[in-house]
Amino acid sequence: MASAHEESRNGFHGGSHDAQVIPIDRGRSSRGAGGFADFDGALDPEDDRRLAELLAFVRRRIAGEYEVDEFGFDAELTDKVLLEIMRPLYRHWFRAETVDVENVPGESGALVVANHSGTIPLDALMLQVALHDDHPDRRALRLLGADLVYQLPLLGHLARKTGHTLACREDADRLLRKGELVGVFPEGFKGVGKPFSERYKLQRFGRGGFVASAIRAGVPIVPCAIVGAEEIYPKIGDLRFLARALGLPYLPITPLFPWFGLLGLVPLPSKWLIGFGEPIRTDEYDPSDADDPMLVFNLTDQVREVIQQQLNELRLRRGHAFPPFL
């Protein structure tokens, strides 16, 4: 197990390096251009190298010669395809910036606890891009998600391939023991599906299971505030009956959805700030303290307060949600 894990991590870091050199869209265009240039007899050696890398990538994908870890995390696919699709959204659409990202440890396990908002959980994916692209150690965030995700076709296996897994005690403990960076949104559906009027007000934090996992593993808790996701799909109403009929936790009405159909699914281009607070240490506790409900509740409240404070500060710092227009 341990060695397979190491391999996947190494593969991941190697892959991340490549990704910086050849974004896939540029790689693709260089295939077309390079192919023609080749016939003209003029091929830049740099293009040639990129082309060779791209072909090697395609060959690995087609022949199935890549590794996934025991959770189904496909580091190469995540880095070269899925995060690549998210990057333009992160950089250019939301103009996302990270604040104090060095508060996230570089090598060891840690638990990132963040607020959840935005009707559609794009904040999870953006947090993943942030920690991969803006952290000096290019960390892979392993998110814990609701079981609803894993029942759905396509979404469930895509979630696993991008390194997410089910939010349960066993998986959280296992990932933290392996020294992974684990991300949780303790508000769950209450947070992501809250109405626009409740924006930047943290909802109740589940049962504190995430705190217990951190104590058991003795890893620090990094409080994280995501500002900007609240404005992407302002939820001003809820089609409750339809949502219940479809088995969904909610079905939002936003200024654009459902009035403009698919166009309503385009997120509004709010400005994002993702801030990471001082890590809250848990290693001074005994692992058995995870079974002390009083301690777990207190620590949960502490984390919640820190994140609410961070949210207020970052919101002030950001100013208008839609610069330069508003």
Binding site: M1, I62, A63, G64, E65, E67, E70, D74
Partner: peptide, 23 residues
Amino acid sequence: GDGVLLLSQCVRRAGLLSLPIPS
């Protein structure tokens, strides 16, 4: 055995074709 294989990986490694069918 150590490690895992996704079904899609097995299919690719075997050089076979898969036919996705709704459940």
